[in-house]
Amino acid sequence: MSEAAAPAVEDAKTPDREAIIRVRDLVVAFGEKRVMNGLNLDVRRGEILGFVGASGAGKSVLTRTILGLVQKQSGTIEVFGESLDDISPQRRRAIERRWGVLFQQGALFSSLNVKQNVQVPMREYLKLSPRLMDELAILKLEMVGLKADVGGKNPSELSGGMIKRVALARALSLDPDIVFLDEPTSGLDPIGAQDFDELIATLQKTLGLTVFMVTHDLGSLYSVCDRIAALGDGKVIAVGAIETMLESRDPWLQAYFHGKRAQSLVGAEPAR
């Protein structure tokens, strides 16, 4: 029993944590066009990594490649220290259970209601009593800022912002270690977006969540992201805290972080 008393608090707040996702020399091509060209990226345990890049630069492609939805030509992707290429289907399932994904359009199952959508992963992986599953589904919905009565609605009856929230609730359904968020705050009003950011920050603090967030929301980048990686020409052109981005000489990053919209944010919220 004393061994049970020595819990493995592996995600203690050490400054240089191990990489939970490690991408090396990734090449992804569609026909002749190389979208990823020798990309390297580390996502550290317990951090919120913001991922930026011009539209069409391949941010979503990278996410989808890590998730195994897009075939890569070469390179390695390691998640939880295991290369996704040479693991058994069982191991892969175990890994898939430990990540949650918020797709850009929500990707809610349209034939299930909201509560059932959130319960899909629980039904698939856990054996729980119906009562606990109902409670958990509503808990997750309330955690993402929705009312319990949303649970009975169909996805087609929801607004864009609500779809995002339900999709996040579903992504968090199994208390994953990593969540992939594809533009989580796009289509939300500024207050909703700020709530969303705070929610993600809270979850990260309490659950030791690792967040990989593709975003264009400068507010999110400033307020919640621990590090930011910028994608250009199929490579990560810069990675680091927001200060690193601001100091970068790269013309695209200059335009991105010193544009009019960014200026107004910097003015309102001086560098933290």
């Binding site: 049970a4 008393a5 819990p7 493995a8 608090v9 958990l136 808990l139 997750k140 955690m143 968090l172 208390d175 659950l207 030791g208």
Partner: peptide, 8 residues
Amino acid sequence: RVGRLDTL
């Protein structure tokens, strides 16, 4: 003595 606690 709880090692990890999550929402569930």
